[in-house]
């Protein structure tokens, strides 16, 4: 086939209305969150003492962290889908949540006597946390990857990682409603580990499925 013939075929396939990448990602985040909410309510549900927990400092702070992950990374999804800009991720995209956690850990270490550090860190639900956050991230990760697949990411692995990070943030937000380990020490270790697992698996998947 000659190149001019191919061009003739491509021009015959031109049509208006490609849809906006940004809107597709917002749709994916929304769809992921709705499906995750359904999963969450049917399986674990929120903790029974949520009414009193909300009045504490440590419980609401978990949402500051998990939502910070979503809010700081989601705006870069569109960028990742671009062949021109998708080559790098600015530091501010990934720096916010770790800084918040670090600050909270320092405050917690100051607030708690040293003999309670270990128990707070180990918590009561570490393995549930490691299993539940990845599972609750799956719907959003799938929805985001599908939207990313319609883009042209310059670096498919990095694009996959960002999808995973946003999805893990959504998954962790829901899990935090159930989890009764509220110490920043617990969050810093187990939530971080769970988010890291989701992100690296998504990067590996992205490297395979987001190529174009």
């Amino acid at each position: 086939m000659k190149t001019t013939d191919l061009i003739a075929a491509l021009s015959a396939d031109s049509y208006a209305g490609m849809g906006s990448t940004r809107r597709r990602f917002y749709g994916s985040v929304l769809a992921g969150a709705v499906v995750t909410a359904g999963m969450f309510l049917m399986s674990m549900g929120w903790r029974p003492d949520i009414g009193t927990a909300i009045g504490t400092i440590r419980f609401p702070f978990k949402f500051v962290v998990t939502l910070a992950i979503v809010m700081s990374t989601a705006p870069f999804l569109v960028r990742m889908a671009s062949p021109v800009d998708g080559g790098s991720l600015p530091h501010r995209a990934v720096g916010a949540a770790p800084l918040l956690i670090l600050l909270a850990v320092v405050l917690e270490l100051l607030a708690l006597p040293a003999d309670r550090w270990w128990d707070s860190l180990v918590g009561s639900n570490a393995f549930l946390c490691l299993g539940a956050i990845p599972l609750l991230s799956v719907p959003s990760a799938v929805a985001l990857m599908l939207a990313m697949k319609r883009g042209a990411p310059a670096r498919p692995r990095l694009a996959g990682a960002v999808c995973g990070l946003v999805a893990a943030g959504i998954g962790a937000t829901f899990y935090a409603l159930h989890c009764d380990d509220d110490s920043p020490l617990f969050v810093a270790v187990w939530y971080t580990l769970a988010v890291a697992i989701v992100t690296s698996v998504s990067a590996a998947i992205g490297g395979r499925v987001l190529r174009w």
Binding site: T3, V84, A152
Partner: peptide
């Protein structure tokens, strides 16, 4: 060349119309 033309065609939705076309084509 043909593979690139196909990609330009199928991924034309990723071009930001407020920016110039050159860098986008080059990136693809």
């Amino acid at each position: 060349v043909q593979e690139t033309l196909l990609a330009i065609h199928l991924k034309r939705g990723t071009w930001d119309r407020t920016r110039s076309l050159g860098p986008w084509v080059t990136a693809i």
